[in-house]
Design a protein around this nucleic acid. Structure first.
Lengths: 270, 270
DNA sequence: AAGTGGTCTAGACCACATA
DNA sequence: ATGTGGTCTAGACCACTTC
């Protein structure tokens, strides 16, 4: 018998989680089980309040999360319906190269090309907020999928982090794991810019393509949960071996607001 | 006619907008004006309640939106700080070319190159779920930003939709608006695949770049809220004029919903 | 008229951070 | 000890949709 205690049938203070989190997971489980089938009507907020003995605030916090995840859809005045049963189609999840390859069922790998302390490129300086003239630790690796080179990668580490990185096995290190586990840095957000570039002779050689071949260029700045940039990287992918996939969600029409000078006269910023 | 509303110095019932929306826009304007400078401390929730004479609910609703947009960052027990002055790229939001250009402050445009009924390419057939031999409506346009060609675009419409599209001004139509407003189709999700390609002679000529130049290739399938594919498109962007930006979020080690007896820290996903 | 989700108030207690 | 944001309650009124 598993030593797991399912979240109860209803949220309770005995569980060390907010009530709305408990309720959200309870509801998520029911949805995934198809309890209200896709397209079917979901219980009203009032009904959920009564059934689970929580205030409407808790119910709305839980539902808001599920709506945001795409499982539910609310219609003002009409009700709530189930629109999906799974969240496996993850929207914009930050993953390392290794995690991404594994998710695709490919065997990830890396080969160290170079590593040195020096002045990084302007893009990295700006992204990491380095001082002019401040050095950083630069690591260049070839990334492999199932043993085949598919990307050339340069990562730039602030010196403070690089010191603690010194003894890592750069050939095989999963940088995100190093950050999270060895350095204890919780990762928050990542910002990526994608464009296309022509392969230089050096990189074309490493990747085994013709000079001038189109490559997918991915520049990524990774931030800690505190909002500070901790890592910058540029990856150049062989376009014939790698496609970047994103799932986007349509946002309900946004309000057009013009917070302009008020009719009574320009509002003085006090 | 666009309904624009002038906002005052504080939310009021005289404005036909929710108080939290009014407050959000008032605060957004101040942040963009640098009132609390980036990195500086933002007024506490209690202070905002007092200053704007609204309940904490309203303040929190407004702040939540701004946090979600990336303008603010909250720290439990410590306070709120300004982290940016401009709306950052939304996380995985599905936007039309026009909407995207507007968000970037560029003037969008289009020039019709060709439109015809015929057999679309295999990628479109697969994405739209067409029958073998089934025709579709293909529209090729040059997309402009501030009057400069930056992308070559081919969209493929199922015949059923194309009929209703016939009288649209293809030179300037915003396809997403046509779908949503004229055809009454609610858009849900979009799936994109990005890669790099070399410009063919014809496309290079249209875009004003050299043949063989690297282009960013974006293939998108757009789905209605009912989950059916309604539109397929491929866009080839000049890599020197356009960068695709994405924000990703690190997945917090997923809440173990059924963990138990673990006195360990409940990391509430916010 | 009844039910729904959207908004809002006025409280309350808590865990956390700072001093 | 104090102030902060996080959570929660118990109400209330509204606009919208359906009957």
């Amino acid at each position: 018998m598993k030593a797991t205690v399912a979240l109860g049938e209803r949220p309770t203070a005995a569980v060390p989680l907010p009530l709305y989190v408990q309720l959200r997971e309870i509801l998520r489980a029911r949805i995934q089980a198809g309890d209200p089938p896709v397209g079917g009507p979901f219980p009203s907020e009032a009904e959920l309040c009564a059934r689970y003995r929580v205030s409407r605030t808790v119910v709305r916090q839980a539902l808001d999360d599920l709506v945001r995840e795409g499982l539910l859809h609310k219609h003002k005045g009409r009700g709530t319906v189930v629109t999906s049963t799974s969240i496996e189609e993850q929207l914009g999840v930050l993953k390392s190269f290794t995690e991404e390859m594994q998710a695709q069922g490919r065997l990830p790998g890396a080969r160290l090309l170079a590593s040195y302390h020096g002045l990084p490129e302007p893009a990295a300086v700006a992204a990491l907020g380095l001082q002019p003239g401040e050095t950083a630790y630069v690591v260049e690796r070839l990334r492999l999928a199932d043993g085949v080179p598919i990307a050339w990668e340069r990562t730039v580490w602030p010196e403070a982090l690089a010191r603690q990185l010194a003894d890592a096995d750069l050939d095989n290190a999963v940088f995100y794991r190093v950050l999270e586990e060895s350095l204890g840095i919780l990762l928050g957000m990542g910002e990526q810019t994608l464009t296309a570039v022509a392969a230089s002779g050096e990189i074309a050689g490493a990747l085994g393509v013709a000079t001038g071949s189109p490559l997918l260029c991915v520049e990524r700045t990774t931030y800690g949960v505190n909002g500070r940039a901790v890592l910058w990287g540029r990856s150049l992918y062989r376009a014939d071996c790698y496609h970047y996939r994103v799932r986007l969600q349509r946002q309900p029409s946004r309000l057009q607001l013009l917070p302009t000078t008020s009719p009574g006269g320009p509002s003085a910023a006090s």
